[in-house]
Computed example of a mutant assay.
Amino acid sequence: MNVEASSKTPIVRAGMERISRDFSEGLAGLGYARTRSKFWTRRYEHHLEFIHLFRSGSSYGAPYNASISLRVHLGIAVLDDEREPTWLNGPNSSDLALFHADRFHLRFNAASGSTYERCLEDLLRFATTRAEPWFSTWREPTALLDEERSPLDGEARAALARALRGEASSERVALTLKRFGVPVAGARAKRPRAAEAAS
Rank of each mutant, 00 (worst) to 15 (best):
V3P: 02
V3N: 07
E4Q: 03
A5M: 03
S7A: 10
I11M: 07
A14T: 08
G15E: 09
G15M: 09
E17R: 11
R18D: 08
I19T: 03
S20F: 04
R21P: 01
R21F: 00
D22W: 00
D22R: 07
D22Q: 10
D22M: 01
F23T: 08
S24L: 02
S24V: 00
S24D: 10
E25T: 14
G26P: 05
G26R: 05
A28M: 03
A28E: 10
A28W: 00
G29W: 00
L30W: 04
G31I: 07
Y32F: 15
Y32P: 06
R34N: 08
T35S: 12
T35Y: 02
S37N: 11
S37G: 03
K38Q: 14
K38M: 14
K38I: 14
F39R: 13
F39C: 11
F39Q: 15
T41L: 05
T41G: 09
R42G: 06
R43F: 01
Y44Q: 12
Y44L: 11
E45C: 11
E45Q: 15
H46I: 11
H47Q: 12
H47M: 06
L48Q: 09
L48H: 05
L48T: 07
F50G: 11
F50S: 12
I51F: 10
L53M: 09
L53A: 06
L53C: 05
F54G: 04
F54R: 05
R55N: 12
R55L: 06
S56G: 00
S56P: 00
S56C: 02
G57Q: 03
G57K: 08
G57P: 00
S58W: 01
S59N: 10
S59E: 14
S59I: 09
Y60H: 11
G61C: 06
A62I: 08
A62H: 03
P63M: 07
Y64F: 02
N65H: 11
N65G: 10
A66E: 13
A66M: 07
S67W: 04
I68E: 10
S69T: 15
S69V: 14
S69M: 11
L70N: 09
L70V: 07
L70S: 06
R71E: 14
V72I: 15
H73I: 00
H73Q: 10
H73D: 14
L74A: 02
L74I: 09
L74Q: 01
G75C: 09
G75M: 10
I76V: 09
I76W: 04
L79N: 02
L79Q: 05
D80P: 05
D80N: 11
D80K: 03
D80C: 05
E82A: 13
E82Y: 02
E82C: 07
R83K: 06
R83M: 08
P85N: 13
W87S: 14
W87N: 12
L88M: 14
L88F: 13
N92A: 04
N92R: 05
S93A: 09
S93T: 01
S94V: 06
L96Q: 15
L96C: 12
L96D: 15
A97N: 13
L98N: 13
L98R: 15
A101V: 12
A101P: 01
D102L: 06
D102S: 12
R103L: 07
F104G: 07
F108C: 10
F108Q: 11
F108R: 12
